[in-house]
Design a protein around this nucleic acid. Structure first.
Lengths: 230, 230
DNA sequence: ACCTGAACACCGTTCAAGT
DNA sequence: ACCTGAACACCGTTCAAGT
């Protein structure tokens, strides 16, 4: 019962932007978007909330920086490949998996348009679409379609994860609840939604995501084959 | 200087879910996402914050309901047309315009996966994709691609509008700032992003959005023409 | 230069008390 | 049944004061 340990553990290393971001990622991963708070964060770093402001501008800056760290790692981890199409698929899947592992990245990405994390993705997509042979005036539409699709899926996955967490369910239980609600819609007004309710229940998110990417890639290829009518 | 007017105006009609949602939409339109507060809302409705809870479950419920009101109106306003492809384009453009007019709808939509507002869009998209002649097993991918693309663009437009508002800029000034930041990136690391910086400045968002939709539609058509290899 | 932590100006939500 | 408004338990952010 020696009392030599201090009641509040003091930090050994001095605070830094990197250590703050790292702690934020841990917090976001373990407790979701609502888990990142200047108070919990400063507690975990054994300091006061005000100290954080010496290293980061504000909460939005912090969230974007945490998101960027994940995106940068994800981009680095994607094995390079000679074929642009395979590259694009790997890129998209890499982002899908990253958001699956860190759902908060999906919404952080959406909240920081034009910022670094989005630029990293944009750049990689753009280079590969170029390599695919798209003409200058169609590149932008192709990259935009891929980027927005990825962001759309990411945002939705983030929201699914967030809602499931709030209600104390896991992802599949949550999707089960959605499917149940859909199958009780009025069949005259919502025939399509009702008919796909079953698919929501037991589909493979990842494969479905990839099917969408392939569909967009088909559209891009077709645009390249028959370039423009005049 | 008569004092017969009460200092706080009292409401004439009793509170209702509809009137609360209507007032929320006005507040969101005029002051952005941060403008919707139980205090400002109850002030505007000449009541106390607690009263609102008799009619709505919580803030997320309120936001989704406000979003659903806009989406429902948007769906109703789209003129029906015999050609599924034209219908899909009109549907997508309708949502684009709705989010352009009410940027908060973009993020509210993303936050309510599987809820009514999203189901309305899903259903309309699904019916038209079916009419296009897609087989059962490819319908879901096609609808998913369109829906996620629309959600992705919507989310990004919402974020653009929100950030511009926070910084007191209008949309084009904000995009100008993004373009300026992009054109100062390292040309060796970010050649693509730099090369499209100019396009960000003076592109037409709406037309670009439509180009993406057309690209996806091409991919869907191609999938229909050469269904599946075996 | 960097950190501390109390204080400020907010939030969403609850709930006893009223009508 | 519906409304009131004070109170609760939080937020992000600031800033005088410390080292």
């Amino acid at each position: 019962m020696a009392k030599k340990a201090r009641s509040v553990q003091r930090r050994e290393e001095s605070l830094s932007r990197e250590s703050i971001i790292e702690a934020s990622i841990e917090l976001l991963d373990s407790s979701g978007e609502g888990g990142l708070t200047f108070r919990t964060l400063s507690e975990r770093l054994a300091t006061g909330p005000g100290a954080l402001y010496w290293h980061i501008a504000n909460k939005s800056d912090l969230l974007t920086a945490a998101c960027d760290a994940i995106v940068a790692r994800t981009m680095e981890a994607i094995p390079p490949c000679a074929k642009p199409k395979a590259n694009l698929r790997a890129l998209a899947l890499g982002m899908f998996d990253a958001i699956d592992e860190h759902p908060w990245v999906g919404s952080a990405l959406a909240q920081a348009p034009g910022e670094m994390p989005m630029v990293r993705i944009l750049e990689r997509l753009g280079q590969q679409v170029r390599a695919l042979g798209a003409e200058d005036d169609t590149q932008w539409a192709a990259v935009g379609a891929l980027l927005n699709y990825i962001l759309g899926v990411g945002g939705r996955n983030a929201a699914n994860g967030q809602l499931a967490r709030e209600r104390g369910l896991d992802r599949s239980d949550f999707l089960e609840a959605v499917a149940a609600a859909w199958s009780q819609l009025d069949p005259r007004e919502y025939p399509f939604t009702r008919s796909v309710a079953g698919q929501v229940r037991d589909h493979d998110d990842r494969m479905e995501f990839l099917a969408g990417i392939d569909l967009i890639l088909r559209g891009i290829e077709r645009g390249i084959e028959s370039p423009r009518r005049r």
